[in-house]
């Protein structure tokens, strides 16, 4: 690692002050599971590393039917929290798929969102949930929709002096859910990930459906067409397959050195159908 100064603010205001001072010469350290490798390889050479782990951003709260998750909530907390299991179990299922157990010890929700890996699980989940990110800067506070936050591979709307402090979403207790992914190896980054949430009305028809993909574009993809295709319909195998096909057809995933875009697209369709089927089965169990 290149030499840098280390700062450990104890309050958000202190952290923002430091960010305001150093701007893009600073890097914010949360769980460090993406940042430290980048520093090791000298791909980033910040003058200052601002370690925000001392900030009080680690709470999981429910208020007015909305679930709030602090930026410093660790992946293992998502896996183990009773509140998450009751209010938004899809987060727990997604967290279990992230990295290895050591990554899940330290990695944070805020870190994953800001790192913005297009194949990562949490950005896709937040996109599906239509979550809102709470963002703070020296000049104020704002919220940003997850569906707008990600702007490209490893890039977001965040400016150099901003910090994500938390993320807020609907509690989706009544929804069935599923995260399906295919990776090159157990625990590895997803080639394609699909997040599906489905709620059913009293007649067993789809009341709401939310679907997002990871790994199929330069950022998470909200599959709005699936939702339109399902809403109000009976979720038969054919209907789900058709919806998944619709989603698949709208994708144009890139190729890389390991996997072709054509294959990603194909897998996205298969996994979307499976995720929808599993989510529907769970939704039936919940009604």
């Amino acid at each position: 690692m290149h030499p840098f100064e280390y700062a450990a603010p104890e309050t958000l205001d202190q952290a923002l002050g430091l960010l305001g001072e150093h701007g893009d010469e600073a890097k914010v350290l949360a769980g460090g599971q993406s940042l430290i490798p980048i520093l090791h390889y000298r791909l980033a050479r910040p003058r200052v590393v601002i370690d925000i782990n001392g900030l009080l951003l680690g709470d999981i709260v429910v208020e007015n039917g909305r679930l709030g998750v602090g930026a410093l909530v660790r992946y293992h907390q998502l896996e183990e929290s009773d509140v998450i299991a009751r209010r938004c179990p899809v987060l727990g299922e997604a967290a279990r798929l992230i990295g290895n157990v050591r990554v899940r010890t330290l990695g944070t929700v805020g870190g994953s969102l800001v790192h913005a890996d297009p194949a990562a699980e949490l950005p896709a989940v937040m996109t599906a949930l239509d979550a809102r990110l709470a963002v703070a800067s020296p000049s104020g506070r704002r919220t940003v929709a997850a569906r707008e936050f990600f702007t490209g591979p490893l890039t977001t709307m965040l400016t150099a002096d901003e910090i994500v402090t938390g993320v807020e979403m609907d509690a989706v207790s009544s929804y069935g859910w599923a995260v399906e992914e295919l990776s090159r190896r157990a625990g590895d980054f997803a080639v394609v990930a699909v997040v599906a949430l489905v709620s059913l009305d009293r007649r067993g028809r789809v009341d709401d459906a939310r679907v997002a993909f990871g790994g199929v574009a330069d950022r998470p993809v909200w599959a709005r067409a699936v939702e339109d295709a399902l809403r109000g319909r009976e979720p038969t195998a054919d209907v789900l397959a058709h919806a998944a096909q619709t989603a698949r057809d709208a994708l144009e995933p890139p190729s890389d050195a390991f996997v072709s875009g054509a294959y990603r697209r194909h897998v996205a369709g298969v996994l979307c159908r499976r995720a929808l089927a599993r989510a529907v089965a769970r939704a039936l169990g919940r009604t």
Binding site: R184, S260, H266
Partner: peptide, 13 residues
Amino acid sequence: ITAERVARALGLL
């Protein structure tokens, strides 16, 4: 023998 190569051999693509 990656999943993609098998998928191609199976004619899925």
